[in-house]
């Protein structure tokens, strides 16, 4: 059974300071969170005591101001950042869409990029071969699929990335913001695909500043502020 359980998860990391003219009180990490002193070292508290539980079929929207920890939380869930405290228990195959361009090479064709994206996501050659046409169909790229990726518009790139990430039906899908990139018809199509994923007992976690998108797509909303959970509704 697909599930995500976070219990008092925190992420603290040491800040490796670069030369800057900014006053110490105004320095901010790229990850967001709070800067604090630990002995002689500066540390960033990116997440602090985050707890929640998601079960099959849940679609969680992460909201909060810039630097609240939305992307950091997604990356903790994906396993890119190792939490410094608390426990995470995830059951299910996780895939993520943080950046449309990850795994896509500008000079390679859309078809070749599907192969590369599949390899990076751990698919077998047979799985890639089997799903190739379905991805191309969903992306609606037509003959563009054999043109270099750099020739694609932002919306075409988003369609291909979304199709590649969701065609193999991950049990847990993590998405950051970018889904708002495509046009209205793509967003509608993406929502239907996400509905299908959720109905197949999957979990979706989507971080966005777009309240309308969160309301349209998600069944739960978690508000983060300065790395802490402000509300979960």
């Amino acid at each position: 059974m697909t599930s995500i359980t976070l219990n008092n998860v925190s992420l603290v990391y040491r800040l490796f300071e670069k030369l800057t003219l900014s006053a110490p009180g105004r320095r901010r990490s790229a990850l967001g969170g709070n800067i604090a002193k630990s002995g002689t070292k500066q540390v960033v508290q990116a997440l602090d005591g985050v707890s929640f539980e998601l079960k099959a079929g849940d679609r969680l929207g992460l909201v909060g101001p810039n630097g609240a920890g939305k992307t950091t939380l997604l990356k903790v869930l994906y396993g890119i950042y190792q939490p410094s405290g608390g426990t995470i228990s995830i059951t299910g195959k996780v895939d993520a869409l943080f950046n449309i361009h990850i795994g896509f090479r500008p000079e390679a064709t859309g078809r070749r990029n599907i192969v590369l994206r599949g390899l990076i996501s751990g698919w077998t050659a047979a799985e890639i071969e089997e799903k190739m046409e379905e991805i191309i169909d969903f992306s609606e790229l037509g003959d563009f699929i054999d043109l270099p990726f750099k020739a694609y518009s932002q919306g075409m790139a988003a369609r291909l990335a979304f199709a590649a990430a969701t065609t193999l039906e991950p049990e847990i899908l993590l998405m950051d913001e970018w889904i708002g990139a495509g046009d209205a018809s793509f967003q509608e199509k993406a929502k239907r695909r996400m509905d299908e994923l959720a109905e197949k007992a999957g979990i979706i976690v989507l971080a966005s500043h777009d309240d309308a998108l969160i309301r349209r797509v998600c069944t739960k909303k978690l508000t983060l502020r300065a790395g802490r959970v402000e509300s979960l509704a």
């Binding site: 990356k75 994906y78 396993g79 890119i80 993520a96 943080f98 950046n99 990850i102 795994g103 990076i120």
Partner: peptide
């Protein structure tokens, strides 16, 4: 960097 910050490879 983009791979390291965006994938679990």
């Amino acid at each position: 960097a983009s791979f390291i910050q965006g994938t679990t490879l």
